[in-house]
Design a protein around this nucleic acid. Structure first.
Length: 427
DNA sequence: TCTGGGGTCCTAGGACCC
DNA sequence: TCTGGGGTCCTAGGACCC
């Protein structure tokens, strides 16, 4: 059996850990740049605040109901996420925990065959809550897709389920499938849901589970569709991931605080993003063969609906894979020159590193000069300092110091757990 | 007039996830 | 005025090779 643990309204819960007076109070957390709403407490959901909706639209209602509002504070969330995952690893053993995202983890419960899975799951739930202050929901089932489905049911009905749902018999599974709309299945997004409803009269997970593999192959994206179908039929096809596999692509992208038309501002931003991406690269001991940059133009006004601005991208394949920041910044800035159009206003830029290989391959390369190793040493020192300070105290000159383009973060809470001078004070 | 067949690698783009 | 920021996997089709 497999389980998925999912933190309830994770970012909101993180804020509440340090502000217990907000426990019954509606809370929302905003995306970078205070653009959209990316986490809502149950109370905020009840008020009708929409997920991923633009903040400025929800603002009147938020103010009217005195909803506590926070800019995202990733230092805090990252740290609390680590505590939750560490708790799971202690309870179940490292090898049985697959961290799936900042607020979710799959658990392998094969070692508990014969036990009462409800009891096991409840114990996990209560321990995480007691040790970290974060409330979680647990779904248990024979496959990952079904455990996600169980988790959904747990969250939809917190009172009755106590945030734990176990699907361990055919009857329970069948009933769960019948009560789940097809768009709530993990792996069915907007496009497929629309198609299933309109063209195939498939309304529930149950309807879908009755289809054939040939049908799934034809209508649900080939092998992906077959896997999904099997998982719904309680046949495991998506296994637990081996631990700690390295990323195959690394990206750093941001909106600007306001629209920018000066190429130097854009270059400053792109240089900063490149340093960040290179840090991530070195943290997993990889080097990149390909760097790409994209910039997004400001959308045209006087359009009725919201339209994303045009995005232009270009990439350069490097002569040798590298993880050295300034060797990445140089081509990145060349790409900006290539993409930038004079007079155009831009609102966003990003850097992506791909073609990732282990760092050793470079060191083994005979054509790399000796001094490359010195650079590598310097890089790791830079990383250590940045990691300790948890931010970019050491910067490259190209990244600039004025940061005219930087994000808005009006409502960020203190970084309680990662900055000494922002520690919570207790009387 | 008539223009192989098959394999591999790479890239762009589409779908999904949180 | 104001709409995150990351990731994954898969497929189709072109380039290239023999």
């Amino acid at each position: 059996m497999k389980a998925i643990i999912d933190c309830n309204s994770f970012y909101c819960s993180c804020e509440r850990v340090f502000k217990p007076h907000l426990d019954q109070h509606p809370v929302v957390v905003l995306s970078n740049n205070d653009g959209c709403i990316i986490s809502r407490s149950d109370e905020a959901k009840k008020l009708g605040v929409e997920m991923a909706g633009p903040y400025f639209k929800a603002k009147p209602m938020i103010e009217k109901h005195n909803v506590a509002t926070f800019s995202s504070n990733y230092n805090l969330y990252g740290d609390l996420s680590w505590r939750v995952m560490e708790t799971l690893r202690m309870l179940l053993g490292e090898e049985n925990v697959e961290v799936y995202s900042v607020d979710e983890a799959f658990l392998d419960l094969d070692g508990y065959e014969g036990s009462d899975f409800y009891e096991v799951a409840m114990n996990i739930r209560l321990t995480v809550e007691q040790w970290t202050g974060i409330k979680v929901s647990v779904g248990v089932a024979p496959t990952k897709v079904l455990s996600k489905l169980a988790n959904n049911l747990a969250k939809k009905n917190k009172q009755a389920t106590q945030c734990v749902v176990v699907l361990d018999t055919e009857e329970k599974i069948s009933k769960a499938l019948q009560t789940t709309p097809v768009n709530d299945i993990w792996g069915i997004g907007g496009q497929y849901a629309e198609k299933l409803l309109q063209l195939h009269a498939v309304f529930t997970a149950y309807d879908l589970s009755k289809k054939s593999e040939e049908w799934a192959h034809k209508n649900l994206g080939g092998v992906t569709g077959i896997r999904l179908l099997k998982e719904l039929k309680a046949e495991p096809t998506i296994e637990m991931k081996e631990k700690l596999d390295k990323k195959k692509m690394i990206a750093t992208t941001r909106m600007f605080g306001h629209n920018v038309n000066n190429i130097n501002d854009i270059k400053e931003a792109v240089a900063t993003y490149t340093s960040k991406a290179a840090e991530k690269l070195r943290r997993q001991q990889s080097a990149a063969n390909v760097i790409s940059v994209f910039i997004v133009a400001k959308e045209q006004s006087h359009q009725a609906a919201f339209h994303r601005g045009e995005s232009k991208s270009a990439s350069i394949t490097l002569p040798l894979a590298t993880s050295v920041t300034n060797e990445l910044i140089k081509p990145a800035l060349q790409l900006v020159d290539r993409l930038y159009q004079h007079g155009q206003f831009y609102k966003k830029a990003g850097v992506m590193l791909s073609g990732l290989v282990p760092d050793e391959t470079i060191q083994a390369n005979l054509f790399v000069e000796e001094k490359q190793n010195n650079k590598r040493l310097l890089m790791s020192m830079v990383d250590n300092i940045n990691f300790a300070m948890r931010n970019d105290i050491i910067k490259y000159a190209a990244a600039g110091t004025t940061r005219d383009w930087k994000m808005r973060m009006e409502f960020r809470s203190p970084r309680y757990t990662t900055r000494w001078n922002e520690l919570r004070e207790v009387q």
